[in-house]
Design a protein around this nucleic acid. Sequence first.
RNA 1: GGCUGCGUAGCUCAACUGGAUAGAGCACUUGACUACGAAUCAAGAGGUUUCAGGUUCGAAUCCUGACGCGGUCACCA
Length: 615
Amino acid sequence: MTQQLPEKLTSGVLAGLETLYGINAEDKDVTLQSTRREFDGEFTVVTFPLTRLARKKPEQIGAELGEYLKETLPEVSDYNVIKGFLNLVIADRFWIQFLLNTAAADTFGIAEKTDERVVVEFSSPNTNKPLHLGHVRNILLGWSTAQLLTAAGFDVKKVQIINDRGIAICKSMLAWQRFGDGATPQSTGTKPDHFVGEYYVQFEQRFQEEYRAWQQTPAAAAIRSNDPKQRDAEEFWKSYKNTYFNTHSELGAAAKEMLLKWEDGDPETVALWNKMNGWVYEGFEETYRRLGVSFDKLYYESQTYLLGKDMVEAGLEKGAFYRKEDGSVFADLSDAKLDQKAILRSDGTSLYITQDLGTARLRYDDFGAKRMVYTVADEQNYHFQVLFELLKRLEEPYADGLFHLSYGMVDLPTGRMKSREGTVVDADDLMDEVIQEAYQSSLEREATSELSEEERREIIRKVGMAALKFQIIKVGPQKRMTFDPKESVDLQGQTGPYVQNAYVRTRAVWRKAGDRDLSAAAEYTQLEPAERELISHLYAYPTLLRDAAQQYDPSVVAMYCYELAKHLHKFWHDVSILNADSEAAIAFRLSLCRAVGNVLKSGMNILGIEMPERM
RNA sequence: GGCUGCGUAGCUCAACUGGAUAGAGCACUUGACUACGAAUCAAGAGGUUUCAGGUUCGAAUCCUGACGCGGUCACCA
């Protein structure tokens, strides 16, 4: 297949316009789309925009163009015109040959690997508490985008930067030191990252107690009476919390002191820090493994937080940044509709953004990638606009290939997740729940009853994880989504298991078919509607992957897999495969099942979803 | 308040980037298993695409305004 069908049709239309009307039109004048299901045909030319050029009615153009295409292109077997829409019916023999020659390949749709490298960052958690539902969306999105880019031919490197330092981990450390009594994950039988998280929570609780007690003191009353806005008590104390932590709080002072000790390299503090982070990593490792994700390289903030200063210097020399009298460095981004942005403190120390400048360069040095994707929630949109603008002004070689894969936060039916209110949905618990759900559901079925306990557990795990992952990935990244863990995750309808089920059916019929000679497939001539729909859908797969990769949007792939599965189920219902009335039909339909199964597996693999052979 | 994103069936989401009668799933009603697997299929009901204007052959999509809901506006990360 040297030329893709849409391109061929487009150039056919252009030739037709030239021959029929003497018009010299361009590709962009031709609107080609897939035909809506309620009409005959697979491709549709919209003729409204041509009326101005041809100076004829849309219906007339449609009819004349349709006739022309039918005459000149062997792929076009028929056409019909409805108002300004010319629907083209593609010849059965074209579809049949496409299926047998092209779609049958295992790597169908997957682009050949190039050496163009792209770094995809995702997850990047703090080490003070376990991963939750928000991380899950991030991880699934990042992973599937990485897979998608791989399928599009890029050489992808998956990385995360672990926020292993700072005040948060010090809080956990301090709480463990003071209240832990030497307990360990082993001694309490707790998953290690959860163990550390419990101390983080405990710190917050103790701090709140301390804060509330302090609010009763005369010193506190004096401060509140000076509130210029005269807010009520609750509101005032809420807004004062941070200041309290930094000025009056004993626990706050102790945590900050610990941070300073850590920065000084105090051996005891560093040892404690290593111990607790070690526990967290052990726990994260298990969660990642269960989610089926991995990384090519891990960056640690403790090793990168001082980077970027030299780039600030370079920016100063270049005149891209300026130094204030107090020694702080700023960038004036007002001409890019961004603000004055601080990039170095007056005492010369780094800021968050300084570090990000440094790690961008570090990654470029490590991988030579001219494209970098940052999977980070949309609350940081502004930060990344600034970061990318700064890198552009520094004339970094990768500055044009930066992409913030921004996604909406995950809400619960009750609203936003709040750790303070204990409404955070834990990642491990969530996986347990969906797998439990899949288990309950499997009890009602017998399809796997002859398998071993071990095999059945494996299937249930795949089904549960598919439900969870599909549910999250199918929503477009930019969209804020509501996730209801109480209803857990559906296993029916527009879901991962629905797609798996379609795949399982294609496998089942192949098992039943055994070693059958399929050479008769080529003699098949007349497609059933369900077959034509399936094949034309398969035909769209390579283009779809390319488009999805271009948009960094895995949800497109999820929706595609669902649609394909739906067509397969419909096909399954409408026609017989092994009981078909000719050997050609049997062989052809088996080939079709194989191709559909391959694409389903391929597409779901991009989403990080495993396909069972039975379920 | 400035900037920014979003608002589609009761609920969760689509809509090929300006095209046809706005589509799926869940939930609800009804039908189909001695069939290659019913985690399936088929049918029904469900909409003034938040509202008001504008642009044009044509708007959920683009422009203006209003309303509602987020996010963000640190020498924090």
